[in-house]
Amino acid sequence: MIFDFELVADSIPKMLMGIGMTFQLLFLSAFLGLILAILLLLMRISGKWYLSWPAQVHIYIFRGTPILVQIFIIYYGLPQFEFIRDSIFWPILREPFGCAILALTLNTGAYVSEILRGGVLGVDRGVLEAGAALGLSARQKFIYLTVPIAARLSLPAYSNDFISLMKATALASTITLVDMMGIARTIVSQTFAPYEIFISLAIVYMILTWIIQKTFGRIEKYLSRYVKPEGLA
C-alpha cells in the first residue's frame, strides 16, 4: 500500500480542531477527579469504618471495571431511572459531555486516591513524631507535613495517571462527542484510510504525552529540590 502523506498533512489540522474538546475532558475531569480523590483519601484514612468502607467500594468498582463500560453505563443506563431524569443533575447527565466528565472523574478519582494514599503512607513516621513532639495538632501535621511530602512522593505515579486519563478521553467519542478521536473517526468514514488517519492521531497524542511528561518533570524537579541528589551519599 502507499502511505498518503498528503492525507496526513490534511487531516492533522482537522483533528486538532477537536483538541479543545480533548482538553476540556482532560482538565475538567482531572480537576474534579483530584477533588474526589482527596475526598476518598480522607475517607479512607479517617479511621472510621462508615467513611472508609464506601470509599473502598468506590475504588474497587471503578478500578475493577473497564472505563468504556463505565461510560456506557452512565450514558445509556442512568437515563433509565426516572429519579435521575427528575433530579437537578439531569441537565448535566442528559448531555454526553456531562456523562463523559462524570465517568472520567469517577474513574480517575478512584485511581488517584490510591496514588495519594501511597504518598501519605510513604511519609516518614519520624517526621510526624517530631511534629507531634513539638505540639502540632493532627490537622497541622497533616497540612504542613504530610501533604507537601506526600505530594512529592505521589507525583511520578500521578503524572502516569494523568497521561492515562488523557488517552481515556478518546473513549468519549463512543458517546457522540467530537474530540480528536471523534473527528478522526469521521475522517476515516469519509476517506476509508484508517491507517494514515489513526497514525496521525497517534502522533498528536504522543506529542501531548511528551508535553505532559515534560511539564510534570519540571514540577517534580521543583518539588524534589530538597531531596538528596543521586550519587551523593
Binding site: G126, A130, G131, A133, L136
Partner: peptide
C-alpha cells in the same frame, strides 16, 4: 517537653529556618 530523636527527624521539605519557625508559628 522538647524531644530530640536518634534520626534527627527534621522536616525535609523545609529550610532549616522554617524547621525552627513552624511550631513557634503554629503552636
Amino acid at each position: 517537653v522538647g524531644m530530640v530523636f536518634q534520626s534527627f527527624n527534621l522536616f525535609p521539605h523545609m529550610t532549616i529556618l522554617k524547621n525552627l519557625m513552624l511550631a513557634q508559628r503554629l503552636v
